[in-house]
């Protein structure tokens, strides 16, 4: 997680007849409704700044209309920005020549789409080979690589099927294999699992996490689903009305929501599955207890451990080092919603 892979700097996207002339209004702080009312232009992205480290999963999250799909399309410039920079590996994608951009798309960044966007007239294996074909890779080698990726996503034996003959989950596996086959080190995933039903979605998340453990790609993952974001994101950025509201790790966002919008977002999540002992533990105990738990353990696992051991408290360790302690009480406190929400109308009765 050391070096930066992608740097987004002062990125603006304004939709309308004359977007360039609107940048100064937006810079001056004009709101989305005002700009629409007075100038007939719509803000897509408003001064986005984001540093994305290499080899991690960066989640960009927001409700529909928040500009997240627009943002991801700026990374490979499927959408032209109104102003700003998009530095990938030290190079500004937004100033690349058409040829350089095409090469960037062929070799450096591949994409997975919400509605799969497979080529319906090609078989599954031919879909996986699509990027390799465009890269100009010789057929035999391409075939080997395509076959390998198809097996990795668990679709061996479906080579000669057409996409329409597969279920949604299987189609998206083809989409994932197609994107991975190009060996690009950036993977753009635009609501890649949103169209799938919950069980299949969890399945796909597992496949992605498993692959990532080995591949260490820079993954930029768009979603509107907070559970998904918390589950797979090393870093999470939250967008609202085209502006960045908060960036941070899952722990940061759950423990310190930046504003009411984020608070609303997180109020229904299962905190016990997100929060790690690390972020809730108390100070080091005077004497280490018998039960030792790793600092990256999430609360719901830790509670089980405590309950099984019939213990009241446990020592939190980082490897062999004692770093803190937790009690059943402190954990219950941590997973309770912040004040006022407990009596909220949407609590289960």
């Amino acid at each position: 997680m050391s070096d930066l892979k992608v740097q987004i700097k002062n990125l603006y996207k304004i939709f309308g007849k004359n977007p360039k002339s609107m940048v100064k209004h937006v810079e001056g702080g004009m709101s989305k409704p005002d700009l629409l009312k007075n100038h007939g232009h719509v803000i897509g992205l408003n001064n986005i700044n984001l540093d994305i480290p290499a080899k991690g999963i960066q989640v960009i999250m927001g409700l529909s209309g928040s500009g997240k799909s627009t943002l991801i399309r700026h990374i490979n410039r499927l959408i032209e920005p109104t102003a700003g920079e998009m530095i990938v590996d030290g190079q500004d994608v937004l100033t690349m020549s058409p040829d350089a951009l095409r090469d960037f798309r062929r070799f450096n960044a591949s994409m997975v789409f919400q509605k799969f966007a497979l080529l319906p007239h090609r078989t599954v294996i031919k879909n996986v080979l699509y990027g390799l074909e465009i890269q100009g890779i010789e057929e035999k080698e391409a075939m080997e690589r395509g076959q390998k990726w198809l097996e990795r996503v668990g679709l061996k034996g479906f080579e000669e099927h057409y996409p329409a003959q597969l279920s949604g989950g299987m189609q998206q596996r083809v989409g994932l294999a197609r994107a991975l086959a190009t060996d690009a080190d950036i993977l753009l995933m635009d609501e890649a699992f949103s169209a799938l039903d919950p069980l299949i979605r969890t399945d796909m998340q597992n496949i992605l996490l498993e692959l990532q453990e080995e591949l260490h790609k820079t993954i930029i993952f768009i979603t509107h689903d907070l559970d998904e974001a918390l589950r797979i994101g090393d870093n999470i950025a939250i967008l609202r009305d085209g502006a960045m509201v908060q960036t941070g790790s899952a722990q940061d966002i759950v423990l310190n929501p930046a504003d009411e919008y984020v608070t609303d977002f997180i109020q229904d999540i299962n905190r016990a599955r997100v929060l790690e002992l690390n972020s809730i533990m108390g100070k080091k105990p005077a004497k280490a207890t018998a039960l030792k738990l790793d600092k990256s353990m999430v609360i719901d696992v830790a509670m089980q451990e405590l309950s099984n051991a019939k213990a009241k408290s446990a020592t939190v360790v980082d490897g062999n080092k004692v770093v803190g302690s937790v009690t059943m009480d402190s954990m219950v406190q941590a997973i309770a919603r912040p004040d006022g929400e407990v009596k909220g109308i949407d609590s289960y009765r």
């Binding site: 490979n76 499927l78 095409r102 090469d103 960037f104 798309r105 062929r106 070799f107 591949s110 994409m111 789409f113 509605k115 966007a117 497979l118 080529l119 319906p120 699509y130 990027g131 465009i134 890269q135 197609r178 190009t182 753009l188």
Partner: peptide
Amino acid sequence: DKETLEAADAFGANKKERLFG
């Protein structure tokens, strides 16, 4: 389908590859 075309673009297809592919 616009999305299929977008996928072709995202993988770096040029005009000819878009048209004939």
